[in-house]
Measured scan of single mutants.
Amino acid sequence: HNLTITQGKLFFHYNPKLCLSEIHKMEEVSGTKGRQERNDIALKTNGDQASCENELLKFSYIRTSFDKILLRWEPYWPPDFRDLLGFMLFYKEAPYQNVTEFDGQDACGSNSWTVVDIDPPLRSNDPKSQNHPGWLMRGLKPWTQYAIFVKTLVTFSDERRTYGAKSDIIYVQTDATNPSVPLDPISVSNSSSQIILKWKPPSDPNGNITHYLVFWERQAEDSELFELDYCLKGLKLPSRTWSPPFESEDSQKHNQSEYEDSAGECCSCPKTDSQILKELEESSFRKTFEDYLHNVVFVPRKTSSGTGAEDPRPSRKRRSLGDVGNVTVAVPTVAAFPNTSSTSVPTSPEEHRPFEKVVNKESLVISGLRHFTGYRIELQACNQDTPEERCSVAAYVSARTMPEAKADDIVGPVTHEIFENNVVHLMWQEPKEPNGLIVLYEVSYRRYGDEELHLCVSRKHFALERGCRLRGLSPGNYSVRIRATSLAGNGSWTEPTYFYVTDYLDVPSNIA
């Protein structure tokens, strides 16, 4: 807008934040220059609390790290170098490059900038070799853009010569660093050979998330399962459950009422301010606690030095998902009996873990797994792929695949051998790939016309006998059925096997 004052003059007093240069501009645009008398524009009460600059400061050096910015700028000295009290560095987070010096300023003089007072450097006698002032900004957020400017702080001049310097606002972004852990990993099994893994992005990506790394490792069953005799009275049979499938998407929606109208769909109840505040506090606490764990609990591995020492970490090797089922080394339970199943799973520490690289999504279907087997899954978020990966501390989750139908069934015939004193040795093959492992066998036998009897055969007993022995049988026709019990439950009964026990007292003698 054009402003013209045809008559009258300007009068400025007691404006401590208004620089004289701005008042002189007002004289020019209003056409009143030359009308004012000496005392109409006070030299001592206008701009006496402001830094009124008329020179431009330029930054000469900028260096960044993930949490620091090192700045240096060209030296500046007023005509009387004693008038320079120091520099004021202003900075704040700036997602967009549209910041002005006066953003967030209120009537009390406060604003949204963080201000650092910096002492002037030592003055050199040689004007050509003056030290460049600077400042190291610490405690910054990774991968965050900051708006920065600097200006001088000078003393009051009796001659009211307006001098000083100020830089333009520059924008500097800190470097990326390792992201925080992925949030809320959930693993479920939808079949006997697959596990579905879902997660949420890290709360602090500290860069642009480029991919996720998912490692999985087959877990050995508890050692007590191999040692305890679950045929003993009072000892509860062990059981394991597989990871249940995901709930429906509708039930997972946030901010939804727990109660549904019987007449149909209901609208979600909005969260109160107290609920939102509580969630923010919980989120802040979780982030602080995660940072504490990362800094205190997890110790970084030592990389190899120039002395030739090897990095103890196993090298990563990509495998196809079809090879995942046989990740671990199978060892027989008892070496003397080769027909026992290889369900003991000690994992070799030198073995390469299978892994998958996930790009542009937060889910993965891990296939080719062994049925009813526990897996430990390790999830890392990465925001750099080359020249070397920059990934987060791992988040861990466990899951067990679903049982395989008929995996616990005894394959092959049940054979028998009759000894003296009416002892019958029953023999059968253990299931080759049971659900988890076989903890015991149930032997059901009966003599024709009598009630059915049951015998429990422990895992250890089966390994020693290759089956079991029935003792003290009365003469007669017998039928026997056997079924295995694994961590997933009972298998199917075998087809009945028949044998006849004679009275050993009636056996004919070869003595003449």
Rank of each mutant, 00 (worst) to 15 (best):
A220C: 15
P332N: 05
N206G: 05
T307H: 07
V365R: 05
T288P: 02
E290F: 02
Q275P: 02
E217R: 03
I482W: 00
E282I: 05
N435H: 11
S492A: 04
P387D: 04
T241E: 06
N421W: 14
T328V: 14
V334T: 15
G412H: 11
P244Y: 13
K357H: 04
L235S: 04
H211Q: 10
Q275S: 04
A309K: 10
Q429S: 14
N255P: 14
N208Q: 05
V327L: 10
H425K: 09
A309P: 05
I366K: 14
V358P: 12
F285L: 04
L232C: 13
G467A: 08
F298G: 02
I418H: 04
V327P: 09
Y396S: 03
F499S: 01
V457E: 04
R370M: 06
E249I: 14
A394R: 07
D273E: 12
N477I: 06
S223Y: 13
E282D: 01
Y500I: 12
T303Y: 08
H416K: 09
S283A: 14
D273Y: 11
L440K: 04
N422Q: 07
P314I: 02
T272S: 11
L505A: 10
Q219S: 06
Y396A: 05
R286I: 03
R218K: 08
T386H: 09
V331Q: 15
T303D: 15
T303M: 10
S348R: 12
R483W: 01
S444R: 03
L464S: 11
L235V: 10
L464T: 12
V424K: 02
P403W: 07
A488V: 11
V365I: 01
I418G: 12
C267V: 03
Y448W: 07
L369T: 11
V501Q: 05
L369M: 09
N295R: 08
V411R: 08
F337H: 10
R319W: 13
V296L: 04
A336G: 02
K406I: 05
H416C: 10
C391Y: 15
N326T: 05
S203Q: 13
L437F: 05
E290H: 02
V331K: 15
R466G: 02
F285D: 02
G491F: 03
E433M: 05
D250T: 12
K278V: 04
T494I: 09
S492P: 11
A405V: 13
D503K: 04
E378T: 14
P238R: 04
N360H: 15
V439L: 10
M402L: 05
S257Y: 14
P434L: 02
R319V: 05
N208F: 12
Y478A: 01
P314L: 06
L487K: 15
S398K: 12
L470K: 01
L277D: 02
